[in-house]
Amino acid sequence: MTLIQIDEYDTPAGKSLAETIKASIRTPDSLGLDRCIQCGACTASCPAARFTAYNPRLLVKRVLENDRGVLEDETLWNCFYCYTCQLRCPRNNSPAKLVQVLRQLALNEGIGLENMEHFLGLGEFFAAHGISQVPEHYLGKMAEALGSSWVEFKRDLPAIRAELGLGSLDIRDERKEIRSILEGTGHFERAESLRARLKESGASEGIEENKFLNAIPGKNKSEDINLEKNGRYSGPEALIV
């Protein structure tokens, strides 16, 4: 199984952008891309359009015109994936879905890699813990913005969870199933190749050490706290009247 095969599903080769998008498994068969009447309901509803130069209607138009320049349009990275456009589109088109495929196409061409930099390690963390967390880089930024109270909370999290009678953060995955699935579906190869291209392009900003971070437990290796047995809530019932 090669990387290309996996890409095939998100961005299958097609005669045009529209064909690729329609054939992508990210979009349903019922997608009304060809039926778009350029009514602008999507743009009028779109938070990204309201606050940035992004315009989903135009994006659809450019896709239908097979204007590949759209992949280089930086506003492509402004979409919130909120699906408001999809909710409002009278033709059952979904700019939100279009953008998802377009970003994958852009990444394939090495465009927009800098937006991905700090997310590329999510897969490793997932494989190790079975859960996801905000990438460390951004955790650091959050710590900066939210200050000590949040950092303290993060430090106390295990204790709070214990008090609430909640189990371990990490999942039980003795067979390393998550890793196998990420591997088998080509995720690591994909992440690796993106990382390599990013390095090549020199756009990487690198990860700086963040003093707040060290205060946060569970960011590296699994720290099994309170691993409770499978089952119903076993916490104190005292509060039930």
Binding site: Q38, C39, G40, A41, T43, A44, S45, A49, R50, N55, R57, L58, R88, P90
Partner: peptide, 28 residues
């Protein structure tokens, strides 16, 4: 104005605002 409005908003004085893209001018 060529555009399908997204929504209507009411202001305090009961007047309204129509949120729409003028698709010919590409203006929100």
């Amino acid at each position: 104005l060529r555009g399908r409005p997204a929504e209507v908003i009411e202001k305090g004085d009961k007047s309204l605002v129509v949120r729409v893209e003028d698709t010919l001018k590409q203006e929100l």
